[in-house]
Amino acid sequence: MSGNDPRASTDGGTDVYRDSFVPYINTWGRRTNLLAVALSFGPAIVLLTVFDILPPTEAITSAFVAVAATYGIFWFIEPISYYPVLGIPGTYMAFLSGNISNLRLPCAAAAQESADVQTGTSEGSIISTVAIAASIGVNTTLLGVGAFALVSVFQALPELWRTALGSYLVPAVFGAIFAQFGRDYPKVAGVGFVLALAMTTLLEGGFLGFLPGYPLYVVIIVSVFGTILIARWMWQNGMIEAPEEA
């Protein structure tokens, strides 16, 4: 599907693909993704203008720093890692619409199989573009209808279940994702858990009170960067290694 590489194609379709299709996709891909950046602020702007709710700048900054510390590396690693499979059009579409590994990649692969084109050719890239576009139509519609219906269901539930949904789904997700990553690196998982538990205890016990503001950011930074540093040290000393299929 990395059909941007002209050598990968074997027939005369290459010129159309490289000289017409790819430049068009690059132009419109950049325009639409940047437009989406601007429009994704819609709910935040409505909260500000209609409901007159603006959080303090420090709160937003501190939360954003914590998010960037955790996910910042993925902003770069994910597009670069998925690019060979997604190709140029697929990269724009998949990072705009999300759900890449569980939805976009399987759709693209299945479509190439059924249309009988080779992965890695420009024909393969065209078919994956068609398939990913189709999958975007399906999941946006399904999620939209589903979200609307689920909100009504949620509001009609008895209070015990509404509280339960709010309280117990989130911990299960946290536990599941932790297990998913911890599976490959059980020692790192142990280190992270001990660090986070120690820091949370210090925070709750008021031992971080000497720091300015609400010192939650210290707990997050120590948990994230402490785990990274120790994992790096363990890796350099051969105590852990990356799984075959990372």
Binding site: F181, A189, V191, L195, T227
Partner: peptide
């Protein structure tokens, strides 16, 4: 993975 594990441990 270490970044994810640290954050989710928190």
């Amino acid at each position: 993975s270490a970044a994810m594990l640290g954050a989710f441990a928190y």
